[in-house]
Design a protein around this nucleic acid. Structure first.
Lengths: 209, 209
DNA sequence: AGGTGAATGTTAACACTGTAAACATACCTG
DNA sequence: CAGGTATGTTTACAGTGTTAACATTCACCT
């Protein structure tokens, strides 16, 4: 019974998980700045220094929260890929529509949880290999696999799928960042969803041979 | 003689500018976290609270630094647009090549000063209208004007230039963010410049009618 | 069973941060 | 020259990350 996440007595049970989970409500209310070691420990009902038994320093803690976010994002994208009933506008070939549905799910996730998304791409986590969120690579691999599949179906022109995946990711990531920063809000500006649709259509036009 | 930026005696001369300028070396050495009120004041040879005579709080100071960054970025893009000798690969129609040169200049700027770029898009500055960097809008307007010009020359398909400009900006911004985060570094990954070229070509293929 | 080392949590302390309040000085305008 | 205003300073407080020393509990071995 050592794997259970009880939280009574001197030892916590699974403090590491508790800390990472306590991060979400903190983020939603106070933004990324509220993600402090001490506040996290407080939320988990534990003394400030307890967190340091599980994370080297604040950067490592933040990286773990980011990693958790990428896991949830990955799950969301997979779900969107498997039930692509959300093909708005021009269903076209279903494979491409599926890719578009994935892009929409990505944008939705980020706009629903902007602070989490900001943490995921906040500090230069990927630079330090010790704490680089590995789930991030899985998300990217998922995307690249999608592109490669479209190539096999001749729905996307031949070429390095890696570079194309980077391009697609950059486009969606950029859209999200601009939207989160409140930059798309000006008068006459399209809604983020509308913008995502037109943007992905433009890109897929270019990728289609 | 009140407008000169002397720094002797009780009054500084132009402390506001001095603070914003002191931010750059701090950023380059210590990253965005080194951008503290007290460190800035120290660098300007002034007491910690002096900064508060010119900036409401830290967020406002950071916003001013970001605004300064957007001004320099804007200048850089304008320079790239006026001397487009940098047309690598497939010069095509010169107007489109010019847009590609602008994209390259954008990426170069960001990769040369990653910490400044991170500050520019760091906290949600644009959300608070009181401190939202206005130079940012000018950069976007510049980009949108470029797209509109291409439309007039029939080099880009008709459509809302605003949405297209958002798309182009998002693509480049996303590329930069991924590159800065060290995400493009994996084996077999293209160089950021190479990636920028292929990405912009894909997008322009889609935007061309 | 009992003891022992490792894992985990706690308390105390330090240097640093943002920022409010009260005070001091220099400039500028009448 | 007088006085108000802009600017800079000192002091103080709460909150932060993090180190060091100490305390408790768990897991395992004989």
């Amino acid at each position: 019974m050592a794997k259970d996440a009880q939280k009574q007595g001197y030892h916590h049970g699974d403090l590491r998980r508790a800390l990472v989970e306590a991060a979400i409500p903190l983020l939603r209310t106070g933004g990324p700045d509220a993600l402090t070691m001490r506040a996290l420990a407080r939320a988990a009902g534990v003394s400030p220094m307890a967190a340091y038994r599980h994370f080297e320093d604040r950067a490592a803690l933040v990286a773990a929260v980011a990693d958790d976010g990428f896991k949830r994002l990955h799950a969301r994208l997979r779900a969107a890929a498997e039930s692509p009933e959300r093909t708005l506008r021009k269903p076209q070939q279903t494979a491409r529509a599926g890719l578009q549905a994935i892009a929409l799910a990505y944008v939705e996730f980020a706009l629903e949880h902007p602070d989490e998304y900001r943490v995921m791409f906040g500090s230069k986590l990927a630079a330090d290999p010790a704490i680089a969120p590995q789930s991030r690579n899985e998300v990217f691999a998922f995307l690249r696999e999608g592109i490669a599949m479209l190539q096999r179906q001749k729905l996307v022109r031949a070429g390095d799928p890696q570079a194309m995946a980077y391009t697609a990711w950059a486009l969606v990531h950029g859209l999200v960042m601009l939207a989160i920063d409140g930059q798309v809000r000006g008068k006459g500006a399209p809604s983020p969803e509308e913008l995502t649709l037109t943007a992905t259509e433009l890109l897929m036009f270019g990728m289609a041979g």
